[in-house]
Amino acid sequence: MPALQGLTIDDITAGFDFLEDWEQRFSYLLDLGKKLPEFPEDARTEDNKVHGCQSQVWLHAKMRTDNNTPTIHFQAVSDAHIVNGLIAILMTLYNDKSPADMLAIDYQAVFNQLDLEQHLSPTRRNGLHAMVQRIRTLAEQHA
């Protein structure tokens, strides 16, 4: 299975478009979740926990300053497979961008296009928003 790296959000959107029914999209989302890079065990700390999710989610981030423009690289993981799929989408959408670029992303539009949210329960939608909020807060801190 190809790694998450190299996939663009357009690839994912095209993938979702191509699939016809909910079940296929669901399987695709689960496959995306399986592509997540291994999460470092020592980063599973209380500080890295994202609150507001029903399942457990850990998110940790590093600033990369080796380029001219500093970028943020983050990684997250959950104990629920569906959430890992959502994390894969968020990582594709947000990762390795400058804080300003991250803040400019209209994630709602992307998720609308993926037509995913209507399949998520309201509580899971809240969890997704909590993850996005965490990412945006990170970006704001480094903007």
């Binding site: 079940e23 399942s55 959430v83």
Partner: peptide, 13 residues
């Protein structure tokens, strides 16, 4: 091997 929260959307559908 399957988180309870992973089951609920499938069952709902």
């Amino acid at each position: 091997g399957i988180h309870p929260y992973d089951m609920s959307p499938v069952l709902d559908h």
